[in-house]
Amino acid sequence: MKSISVTHLDQILSITCDNASNNDEMVRHLGGLINEFKGRESQTRCFAHILNLIAKSIIRQFDTPKAQANRGFDEATAALLELAGNIDIEEQETAESGDDRDDDEEEENIENWVDERDAMTEEELAVLDKSVQPVRLMLVKVRVFFETQFCALRPLTHAPATCFPSCAKPLLPSKTRRPFSFLAGMKFSKSLSLMLA
């Protein structure tokens, strides 16, 4: 950053970075340090990052509640957790063994995370929990189903027809049997923040 600033100090039109507060701070300071740079007016907020936050807050409310939360669960949630079984453990293992480079990204997102639930009263929370219950149940079912089928498929990758005994024809074309399909929605902002670092 320093080397760029020395030669092209007056040529910075705009800085694009994600919504982490340290970036706001950086832009603010730059505005004070460089005359030609207007500070906040010249800050472009990364759209991909904002989109990621939006999508996450949508999907987060349907997450299976964590077992260690200290408030008691009602009957429906208890049934849900039982159905979910050990899937959370598996997920954690995946997350732990997964690539470490995502860790910074996650922390960054958590930093200015606004949890709407914090501002809600007990009654409102109860109503909300009840309303998202069907969605949670559906997601758990699909998730567990996929998990079990994935485990069943793994040793049999070359014989897809035998994985589905009830179906005469193999239902899954080979291209859809990818074990993982991570879509790097974040790569946009990640590369930009790397450029600025």
Binding site: G98, E106, V142, F146, E147, F150, F180, S181
Partner: peptide
């Protein structure tokens, strides 16, 4: 079969 990952 795409599986669900909690962080994605």
């Amino acid at each position: 079969m795409p599986r669900d990952v909690s962080t994605r």
